[in-house]
Lab assay of single mutants.
Amino acid sequence: RKWEEIAERLREEFNINPEEAREAVEKAGGNEEEARRIVKKRL
């Protein structure tokens, strides 16, 4: 699934746990840019 690939990239890029990465992607509706913004806000 594409969402899992996005979550994996976010996890590696921001050094967050898989659960946090998945939550961000879900919140963003699968949009990678939006997920990235969500993760950055949390850091």
Rank of each mutant, 00 (worst) to 15 (best):
residue 32 E to H: 02
residue 21 A to L: 06
residue 23 E to Q: 09
residue 31 N to C: 12
residue 37 R to G: 14
residue 33 E to I: 03
residue 38 I to D: 15
residue 8 E to H: 07
residue 2 K to N: 12
residue 36 R to W: 07
residue 40 K to A: 14
residue 6 I to K: 10
residue 18 P to M: 12
residue 15 N to W: 03
residue 33 E to W: 04
residue 28 A to N: 02
residue 5 E to R: 08
residue 37 R to P: 01
residue 6 I to V: 09
residue 38 I to T: 14
residue 43 L to A: 08
residue 16 I to M: 15
residue 41 K to N: 15
residue 9 R to D: 10
residue 6 I to C: 04
residue 38 I to Q: 12
residue 33 E to Q: 07
residue 28 A to M: 07
residue 39 V to S: 07
residue 9 R to H: 11
residue 19 E to T: 15
residue 20 E to T: 10
residue 18 P to A: 12
residue 21 A to Q: 00
residue 20 E to H: 09
residue 5 E to A: 12
residue 24 A to T: 08
residue 3 W to P: 13
residue 11 R to W: 05
residue 25 V to K: 00
residue 32 E to N: 06
residue 4 E to C: 02
residue 34 E to Y: 05
residue 31 N to P: 00
residue 6 I to P: 06
residue 2 K to H: 00
residue 28 A to Y: 01
residue 29 G to L: 05
residue 14 F to P: 01
residue 29 G to I: 13
residue 6 I to Q: 13
residue 13 E to D: 10
residue 41 K to V: 09
residue 33 E to L: 05
residue 8 E to D: 08
residue 30 G to T: 02
residue 8 E to F: 07
residue 26 E to N: 10
residue 24 A to S: 05
residue 34 E to A: 10
residue 17 N to S: 12
residue 31 N to V: 11
residue 30 G to L: 04
residue 20 E to A: 09
residue 24 A to L: 08
residue 43 L to S: 09
residue 3 W to S: 15
residue 27 K to F: 04
residue 32 E to I: 08
residue 29 G to A: 11
residue 21 A to R: 00
residue 17 N to E: 03
residue 21 A to G: 06
residue 12 E to C: 01
residue 15 N to L: 14
residue 28 A to V: 06
residue 34 E to R: 06
residue 12 E to M: 12
residue 31 N to W: 04
residue 11 R to Q: 15
residue 35 A to L: 00
residue 22 R to K: 02
residue 36 R to E: 13
residue 27 K to P: 01
residue 7 A to T: 12
residue 7 A to E: 07
residue 19 E to I: 06
residue 14 F to W: 12
residue 38 I to N: 13
residue 2 K to W: 02
residue 19 E to P: 12
residue 16 I to W: 02
residue 25 V to F: 04
residue 28 A to I: 01
residue 42 R to Y: 14
residue 1 R to W: 03
residue 22 R to A: 13
residue 37 R to S: 09
residue 4 E to H: 06
residue 2 K to M: 15
residue 23 E to S: 06
residue 20 E to D: 10
residue 36 R to H: 15
residue 1 R to T: 15
residue 19 E to D: 01
residue 23 E to D: 15
residue 5 E to W: 05
residue 11 R to T: 12
residue 26 E to Q: 14
residue 33 E to V: 06
residue 31 N to D: 12
residue 20 E to Q: 11
residue 5 E to V: 10
residue 8 E to W: 07
residue 5 E to T: 14
residue 26 E to M: 06
residue 10 L to W: 01
residue 26 E to C: 04
residue 11 R to K: 06
residue 26 E to I: 06
residue 33 E to G: 05
residue 7 A to I: 15
residue 16 I to S: 05
residue 23 E to K: 08
residue 37 R to W: 06
residue 2 K to T: 13
residue 36 R to L: 07
residue 15 N to I: 09
residue 23 E to M: 04
residue 26 E to V: 08
residue 33 E to F: 10
residue 4 E to L: 08
residue 35 A to N: 00
residue 18 P to Q: 14
residue 27 K to Y: 05
residue 28 A to S: 10
residue 36 R to F: 08
residue 29 G to Q: 10
residue 20 E to L: 11
residue 33 E to R: 03
residue 10 L to F: 01
residue 39 V to C: 11
residue 38 I to Y: 04
residue 1 R to Y: 13
residue 9 R to P: 02
residue 3 W to Q: 15
residue 40 K to Q: 14
residue 28 A to P: 00
residue 5 E to M: 15
residue 9 R to M: 14
residue 36 R to Q: 13
residue 41 K to R: 13
residue 4 E to K: 08
residue 35 A to V: 03
residue 20 E to F: 01
residue 14 F to E: 10
residue 23 E to W: 11
residue 39 V to A: 12
residue 8 E to K: 10
residue 38 I to A: 09
residue 5 E to K: 11
residue 35 A to S: 08
residue 15 N to Y: 01
residue 22 R to P: 00
residue 38 I to P: 00
residue 28 A to F: 01
residue 41 K to I: 01
residue 31 N to R: 10
residue 3 W to E: 07
residue 25 V to S: 06
residue 36 R to Y: 03
residue 12 E to F: 07
residue 19 E to W: 05
residue 11 R to S: 08
residue 9 R to W: 04
residue 36 R to A: 09
residue 11 R to H: 15
residue 42 R to M: 11
residue 26 E to H: 06
residue 11 R to I: 05
residue 23 E to V: 06
residue 43 L to M: 06
residue 17 N to H: 12
residue 13 E to V: 04
residue 40 K to E: 13
residue 36 R to G: 09
residue 30 G to S: 04
residue 21 A to H: 01
residue 40 K to P: 15
residue 30 G to E: 05
residue 39 V to D: 00
residue 2 K to G: 07
residue 31 N to G: 07
